[in-house]
């Protein structure tokens, strides 16, 4: 029989039914004889049930009003230097400004590249994926419960009424 520490690393997957058949059989046979791991599994399942039952916490009703008050209340600022003097103190060497500008351009270029390589973030990609999934709905043996998750994860379509 496998030691408890090996079995316990597999219990989370076992609890959601994600183990391959052989591993599942091993865990099941271990569980039949090991009260410690049985307790561990019960605890995992209880934790899962609690997490499933959690609902997103509502923001306090007056949150927006308090933010708005903060924004709208004029601040008693001490007299200060103009913004360009704050951002670019005269004592900074010109080379530092050039370095900052180059870094900003590099970051912007990197962000643009990453966004191009992430079709999962693209609304239109989602449209094509949803369309692909939708037409698989009535394929033989289609797992409609799983397809529903995929189809339900973003808003598509246009109003007809």
């Amino acid at each position: 029989m496998k030691p408890c520490k090996d079995i316990q690393t597999q219990l989370a997957d076992f609890a959601v039914g994600a183990l391959a058949e052989r591993e599942r059989a091993e865990v099941e046979s271990h569980l039949q004889e090991c009260p410690t791991c049985q307790r561990e599994l019960r605890a995992l399942r209880q934790a899962g049930a609690v997490l499933d039952a959690l609902e997103p916490e509502e923001a306090p009703a007056d949150l927006w009003q308090s933010i708005r008050r903060e924004i709208e209340t004029p601040k008693q600022e001490p007299a200060h230097a103009p913004w360009w003097e704050v951002l670019f103190p005269a004592r900074w060497p010109r080379l530092a400004y050039a370095g900052l500008a180059a870094t900003a351009i590099l970051v912007a270029a990197l962000l643009m590249t990453v966004s191009r390589l992430s079709p999962a973030e693209d609304d239109e990609t989602q449209d094509f994926l949803q369309r692909h999934g939708m037409l698989a709905w009535n394929d033989p043996l289609s797992d409609k419960a799983a397809l529903g998750v995929m189809l339900g994860r973003s808003e598509v379509g246009r109003e007809i009424q």
Binding site: Q130, R131, M134, V156, G157, R158, E159, I160, Q161
Partner: peptide, 9 residues
């Protein structure tokens, strides 16, 4: 009743 209907094709 009252739900907005949306067509996807």
């Amino acid at each position: 009743d009252g739900w907005k209907k949306v067509a996807v094709e």
